[in-house]
């Protein structure tokens, strides 16, 4: 799970305070595992250092906590690239897939296309594993099967999500 890119994505939707960022992150992605404040601020300062975000004017009398973070063009480009590129298909990627889909919807990007791209990547990997299975020995085959079943689970999730994108869009873009 890529916290920096997820925060960047949230910032691309609209500039936010650190507190708001944490709250939104927790709401959508941090189910049962809230993001510590420290990690939020350290990540943000790293992003600011790399020029992916800037801090807008501090509101008067509001204290250090009232900094507003705004995404830069560089940051936006990175989010864009991340969202369009398929994840390297391997087990336990659901959360990344999920985050990508939700962000794509929030940002009004073509989530369907992303899912198709992802499906293709998954299937390509499955083909490779199937070939391993068909040509290799039993250990290879069983290992390949392990991967195949997990990839298949991802694909099922992709299908299900694909079928319910509209509903999800309404949920994340009130």
């Amino acid at each position: 799970m890529s916290v920096p890119l997820t925060l960047l994505g949230l910032l691309e939707q609209e500039p936010r305070h650190g507190y708001d960022l944490k709250r939104d992150y927790d709401t959508f992605f941090g189910r049962g595992k809230p993001l510590p404040y420290g990690q939020v601020y350290s990540t943000l300062s790293r992003l600011a250092r790399d020029g992916k975000v800037v801090i807008s004017e501090v509101e008067a009398g509001a204290g250090p906590d009232r900094k507003r973070y705004v995404i830069t063009d560089r940051g936006a480009t990175e989010v864009d690239q991340w969202l369009t590129q398929p994840v390297e298909p391997e087990p336990h990627l659901q959360t990344v897939l999920f985050a990508k889909v939700v962000l794509a919807l929030m940002l009004d990007r073509p989530a369907e296309d992303y899912l198709d791209t992802q499906r293709r990547a998954h299937l390509q990997r499955m083909r490779e594993l199937t070939e391993v299975k068909r040509t290799g020995g039993l250990v290879d085959a069983l290992l390949a099967d392990h991967g195949l079943y997990h990839l298949e689970a991802d694909l099922r999730w992709i299908e299900t999500t694909g079928a319910r994108l509209d509903a999800l869009r309404r949920t994340v873009r009130p």
Partner: peptide, 13 residues
Amino acid sequence: EPRVAAYADREVI
């Protein structure tokens, strides 16, 4: 079924 489709050279949706 994806695992069946994986036996193919390519897939179309």
